[in-house]
Amino acid sequence: MPAKVELDLFSGRPNPTWELTHVESDEILRLLSSLPETTGDRAPEEGLGYRGIVLTPPPDAAFTEVVVAGGVALATDANGRIHHLLDRDRALERRLLETGRGRIAADIIDAVARELA
């Protein structure tokens, strides 16, 4: 089963989602595994507007869900433990966003890219 990506930004409309190819999925998981653990009790973003990107890795991955936003990836493992990983320069977030090109409306990608700039 391929990894799934959800752009968490809307309130009324359903969020845009797409699936990664196996090649993309492997690349993203490699990126993820390279992120160092960091300290902190940061919670997922809430409120109106762009909140982050939710990655649902394939079932055999180390994490069941990863929420990437604002330079931190909150990765939940199979035991429900949340790991705080440092996403320096929001590299993982940007790469995840770019995988949406051609799969969801370009103006949505561009609007979020402006926020990440």
Partner: peptide, 12 residues
């Protein structure tokens, strides 16, 4: 409503 560009949505 969020009128865009790009970000177009409604909220209550």
């Amino acid at each position: 409503v969020a009128p865009g560009p790009g970000f177009i949505d409604f909220h209550w």
